[in-house]
């Protein structure tokens, strides 16, 4: 393969999260020193704009409602919005709290964030929208449903499913244990949570059928849907474990094990949005691209000695960005003939 254009920066602070905006023009990396690095994906020669957004560390990053901007949360208790070429704007503050989970939805025209056990919603105008949502324990993750009509909030003991309009009480999906993150199926049919106890739990919403996906040597911190939601790709093992979701769900099926044999555990997975392969980042910094057909994985980056902590594709699948705990931030632009696995 001809070497893809790659840009690399040593930021000096742990890379906490990376996101690409909806129109695909920019990527943002949120760092442990409170800065946000804004990367212009089209201008290969441009250096990132480094913007201080939080005192302390950035803890969360998400796309904002519009096509261009991002939302960040920090351990200074602030929720901020930042768009390319503009300075950050504070949308909310939670004194003495950390803002660790954020999501937004363009159709719902809402942003949601947590402060401890409470989830707050903010409209496009920056004003609170709807009552504060209370939970029995500190929120471990939140996500709007793909259709934008519901909001799922993970916490100890399960998930609260809120209708954004209507019912004042949430539907509870119960499962004992601490739920630390969540992911909706792109069709809104299943909900997956990341557990404290080294595994995943999930529900098929139409009949509340439950699924437990275990066998991991450590906590699963990263999950994502492969193209067409055929598989749920997961980190937390020495291979990228991919659970089949065709034909109703993963019940009684064996998962695919991609990129097996890495020296360290896979910390982050990023399935390609349009082609059947998965990028996997490891605890030693190694980054691999593995095809779902099981052919041998291709190396993207050698082990750097520092764990991959964040990795994301642009929506068109032409840009891969990843970051490490030691602060390396990389942008790889794939050749024009995107859609095929490079190799």
């Amino acid at each position: 393969m001809s070497r893809s254009p790659e840009r690399r920066w040593e930021t000096g602070a742990p890379v906490v999260a990376i996101a690409v905006n909806r129109d695909g023009s920019h990527a943002a990396a949120a760092l442990g020193d409170g800065t946000l690095w804004m990367i212009d994906l089209a201008e290969a020669g441009a250096e990132p704009a480094v913007v201080p957004v939080h005192d302390g560390a950035c803890l969360a990053l998400a796309r904002d409602i519009d096509g261009g901007g991002f939302l960040t949360g920090g351990d200074d208790g602030r929720l901020r919005r930042i768009a390319p070429g503009t300075g950050p704007v504070t949308l909310a503050t939670a004194p003495g709290r950390w803002i660790e989970h954020i999501d937004s939805h363009p159709r719902a025209r809402l942003r949601a964030y947590n402060a401890g056990k409470r989830v707050h919603r903010i409209g496009v105008d920056g004003q609170p929208d709807g009552p504060v949502l209370e939970h029995p324990s500190t929120v471990g993750g939140l996500a709007f449903a793909p259709g934008g009509q519901r909001l799922a909030v993970a916490h100890y003991g399960g998930v609260s499913l809120w209708w954004l309009k209507g019912a004042a009480e949430p539907v509870r999906l119960d499962w004992k244990g601490s739920h630390l993150g969540m992911l909706w199926h792109p069709e809104g049919t299943h909900l997956i949570t990341l557990l404290q106890e080294s595994g995943l739990h999930g529900w098929r919403l139409k009949d509340r059928a439950e699924m437990s996906m275990g066998g991991y040597p450590t906590k699963v911190r990263s999950v994502g849907w492969t193209t067409g939601a055929r598989f749920l790709a997961t980190g937390g093992a020495d291979c990228a474990v991919c659970w089949p979701f065709t034909g109703g769900g993963p019940w009684d099926k064996r998962p695919l094990e991609l990129a097996a044999g890495a020296a360290d555990l896979i910390t982050v997975v990023a399935p390609h949005p349009t082609s059947p392969f998965v990028a996997a980042g490891c605890g030693d910094g190694l980054v691999l691209l593995a095809a779902l057909d099981g052919s041998p994985p291709a190396g993207v980056a050698p082990a750097s000695g520092s764990a991959v902590t964040a990795m994301v594709w642009s929506g068109d699948g032409r840009h891969l960005l990843y970051g490490t705990e030691a602060g390396r931030l990389c942008h790889i632009a794939l050749p024009e003939r995107a859609g095929k696995r490079p190799g």
């Binding site: 760092l31 442990g32 560390a57 950035c58 660790e100």
Partner: peptide
């Protein structure tokens, strides 16, 4: 039994630079 808040807080502190 464990302290869920400590797991969360220590995870957050580890993200800090320095």
């Amino acid at each position: 039994t464990v302290r869920g808040d400590l797991i969360r807080i220590i995870g957050g502190l580890l993200k800090r630079k320095g």
